[in-house]
Simulated scan of single mutants.
Amino acid sequence: MEKLLDLQKTALVVIDLQKWLGSKYAPYSAEQVVSNAAALADAFREHGSMVALIRVSSKDMKDIPKPKLDSPSPPLNLPEEWDQIVPELKVADTDHVITKKQWGAFYGTELDLQLRRRGIDTIVLCGIATGIGVDTTAREAFMHGYQQIFAIDAMTGFSEAEHDHVKNTIFPRIGRTRTTQEILSALAEA
């Protein structure tokens, strides 16, 4: 049976686990997602594999896309240090913190460059929200030719319907879906 991942060629990519996290997510809570992502990050670090922590940030919001919408966007109400990675992820000196200005982690960032320079051809993807930052990044990764493993219980959506649509419709076409425990077990065997 083929191994799930090769530690030398696989990176963990964590999307938007920042201090701005709200409380209305499904099917998993923000706490569950952060806990699972932190376990994955710790395991990847232990094996010397790349960990990329993706965050969205802006000084004045003038560099964030502002599309014309049929209905107004919900207010942001950003807390102090909203753009900082949550402390539970214990950002390490070896981590790559990548700042983005839009939903996807590849466009306008150095993520692809840093992955390729390290010979990475597979990413394990997790974060919030399944149907926005995670899905957009997954589609970009697919277009860049990366193999993908989706840590399905280390991500969540703004609704269960959003999460399930991406999990059941998009992910099966562009990668493999596994639980955090399945990925941790594969890391232990690698």
Results as ranks from 00 to 15, higher is better:
Val56His: 08
Leu53Ser: 07
Asn36Ser: 12
Ala105Gly: 09
Phe44Glu: 04
Glu46Arg: 07
Ser58Cys: 01
Tyr107Cys: 06
Gly108Glu: 08
Asp63Glu: 05
Glu189Cys: 01
Ala138Arg: 14
Pro87Ser: 10
Glu189Pro: 01
Gly133Gln: 07
Leu89Ser: 02
Lys3Ala: 10
Leu113Val: 06
Leu7Pro: 15
Gly119Arg: 08
Ser159His: 07
Trp82Pro: 00
Pro75Asp: 06
Thr156Lys: 00
Leu184Pro: 08
Ala161Thr: 11
Pro72Cys: 08
Asp70His: 10
Trp82Asp: 06
Val97Thr: 14
Ala26Asp: 14
Ala39Thr: 02
Asp112Arg: 12
Leu53Met: 10
Leu7Met: 11
Ser23Asp: 14
Lys101Val: 00
Asp135Met: 05
Ala190Arg: 07
Leu115Ala: 06
Gln102Trp: 15
Gln114Tyr: 13
Lys101Gln: 13
Lys90Pro: 07
Ile54Cys: 04
Gln102Asn: 13
Leu187Ser: 11
Glu88Arg: 10
Glu140Gly: 12
Ala186Cys: 10
Ile174Asn: 08
Arg45Met: 15
Lys3Leu: 10
Ile170Thr: 11
Leu4Asp: 04
Trp103Leu: 13
Ser29Arg: 09
Glu31Arg: 15
Leu4Cys: 01
Pro172Val: 01
Gly104Asn: 07
Leu12Thr: 00
Pro74Ser: 11
Ala37Val: 01
Thr136Ala: 10
Gln84Leu: 08
Val86Asn: 11
Ala92Phe: 09
Phe171Tyr: 10
Tyr25Gln: 04
Pro87Cys: 02
Gly108Pro: 01
Lys101His: 14
Pro27Asn: 02
Glu162Leu: 13
Val91Leu: 10
Val97Leu: 13
Lys101Phe: 14
Leu76Cys: 03
Gln102Cys: 06
Trp103Glu: 04
Pro72Tyr: 08
Ala38Asp: 12
Ile132Arg: 10
Leu69Tyr: 00
Leu5Tyr: 00
Leu89Asp: 12
Asp42Arg: 11
Thr179Pro: 07
Leu184Arg: 03
Met61Tyr: 05
Ala186Glu: 07
Thr94Val: 06
Cys126Tyr: 01
Ala161Leu: 12
Ala154Met: 05
Ser71Asp: 02
Tyr107Asn: 03
Lys9Met: 03
Thr136Trp: 01
Ile170Glu: 00
Ile98Ala: 02
Gly133Arg: 04
Phe158Ile: 14
Phe171Thr: 00
Ala92Tyr: 09
Lys167Arg: 14
Asp6Thr: 00
Ser57Ile: 06
